[in-house]
């Protein structure tokens, strides 16, 4: 069996365990925590795709995430039913990404300049929503609430039945299923023609264009796909905590997403999930035990990884595993 097929089977089994096994053995309280990790892992996957495979260093993934969360909050408060708000929470970030992608990629903005633009966009949201504290800032019956955020956002419900809420531990299974769908969906996408062209653009944009592919269009679409996934994650986050505030657009949150990817490794999807869970868990643990300031530890890890393990942990272990199996193969023959 090739390594790829082996990995696919492993992840398949793991996701079955995640969906069916974990709820059976884990306590309710922990399950609620896990749901948050899953929502964040979906966000991590979205940036892993855009940055790791599209080569687009987007410092504004939190803008898509936050837009998804706020869209869901506003729409569900107004509609009282969650199906359409969820879809809107995905659709609006996609539209924003298409507009931004057209603006940036068709203007041939790249690299660090692209990072600045995406960062600026998420800060525009941060300031604007932060300034919406007054009574007059509401959309329909939903008050935006400025830096205090929007409390008491209604939970997700079974489609078509607003009285059947899916909240607390019940949100876990749908979230886990969504994580698996996003993960395998992205793998399928990367195995398709589109995915291959996207990776080749990351490797060499000029050469890919000379082969007749429109890099601008493909990068725009990739950004939009990543934005939709980030929006979905935002919806889950907002429904999970029944709350959203402008901190989702802040620089600190953006740094965190980038760190998940760096820890797991650029160019792997599995690594993005692992990196996210690892860092989130560490941050929560440090926050509870107060052994050391969270920022000191995370900052030191951040620096150490860039300097010492620039490829991230999953690719490093994969290479290590390859070397070991090859040695064993040589010894056996």
């Amino acid at each position: 069996m090739s390594r790829n097929a082996l990995g696919l089977w492993t992840m398949g089994v793991l996701s079955l365990v995640l969906v069916f096994g974990v709820p059976a053995i884990v306590e309710t309280f922990a399950l609620i925590d896990f749901t948050l990790f899953i929502a964040m892992a979906i966000l991590s996957l979205s940036l892993a795709f855009v940055w790791g495979f599209g080569g687009i260093l987007c410092f504004g993934q939190s803008a898509f995430f936050g837009l998804g969360a706020y869209t869901y909050a506003v729409a569900v408060i107004n509609m009282g039913e969650s199906t359409v708000p969820i879809l809107l929470g995905i659709l609006l970030p996609v539209i924003l990404a298409l507009v931004l992608g057209y603006f940036m990629f068709y203007g041939r903005v790249s690299d660090v300049y692209l990072a600045v633009i995406t960062l600026a966009v998420s800060l525009v949201f941060y300031y604007l929503i932060g300034a919406s504290a007054g009574e007059e800032y509401k959309i329909g019956s939903a008050r935006l609430g400025g830096y205090n955020g929007m409390p008491s956002v209604p939970p997700i419900n079974v489609p078509g039945d607003p009285s059947a809420a899916v909240e607390y531990e019940a949100l876990y299974v749908p979230a886990a299923v969504l994580l698996a769908v996003v993960y395998f969906g992205l793998r399928a996408l990367l195995a398709s023609d589109f995915g291959r062209v996207l990776v080749s653009i990351r490797e060499n944009e000029a050469r890919t264009e000379l082969l007749g592919y429109d890099a601008r269009r493909i990068k725009t679409v990739a950004l939009a796909i990543g934005a939709g996934i980030a929006g979905l994650s935002g919806v889950l986050f907002c429904a999970w905590g029944a709350y959203v505030s402008p901190t989702v657009f802040s620089l600190v949150f953006t740094a965190q997403i980038i760190m998940w990817i760096l820890v797991g490794g650029l160019g792997t999807l599995t690594g993005a999930i692992l990196g996210c869970v690892l860092i989130q868990y560490l941050a929560t643990w440090l926050g509870e035990t107060k052994i050391a300031d969270v920022n000191i530890v995370l900052g030191a890890i951040f620096v150490a990884i860039v300097l010492l393990v620039p490829s991230g942990f999953v690719p490093m272990f994969a290479r290590l595993g390859d070397t070991l199996t090859r040695r064993r193969g040589e010894a056996g023959s």
Binding site: N295, I296, V306
Partner: peptide
């Protein structure tokens, strides 16, 4: 990362 570290 350094910036986070220094803030902490």
């Amino acid at each position: 990362g350094l910036s986070l570290f220094l803030i902490g």
